[in-house]
Simulated scan of single mutants.
Amino acid sequence: MNAPAWRIWLVVALMCGWGILTIRFVTKQEWPMALLCAVLLISNGVTLYRLTKHGK
């Protein structure tokens, strides 16, 4: 899949945000929100893998 560069950067930015939120919620011991953020982080990681696995 030839994904536009802006979409790849958007997914990378979302992954960074979800990772930061996951760490923040884990340190505050808010487990449901930490789990939700971790799931969204993994989901965006899978999306990024699918966008970049074939290259350009």
Rank of each mutant, 00 (worst) to 15 (best):
M1V: 05
A3T: 07
A3M: 03
P4K: 03
W6I: 00
R7Y: 07
R7G: 01
W9K: 14
W9E: 10
L10G: 00
V11L: 01
V12Y: 02
A13D: 01
A13I: 01
L14A: 08
L14W: 05
L14T: 03
L14M: 04
C16T: 05
C16G: 08
C16F: 03
G17M: 09
G17F: 14
G17C: 07
W18Y: 14
W18H: 13
L21R: 13
T22V: 11
I23Q: 04
R24Q: 10
F25G: 04
F25S: 07
V26S: 10
V26I: 09
V26H: 07
T27K: 07
T27W: 03
T27G: 02
T27I: 06
Q29F: 12
E30P: 06
E30F: 05
E30G: 03
P32Y: 11
P32S: 11
M33K: 14
A34C: 08
A34E: 08
L35G: 15
L35P: 05
L35K: 11
L36C: 13
L36N: 15
L36R: 15
C37W: 06
C37F: 13
A38Y: 12
A38C: 15
V39Y: 13
V39E: 14
V39F: 15
S43V: 14
S43F: 11
N44F: 15
N44D: 07
G45F: 12
T47F: 11
R50D: 10
T52A: 00
T52N: 03
T52Q: 06
H54K: 12
G55M: 12
K56N: 05
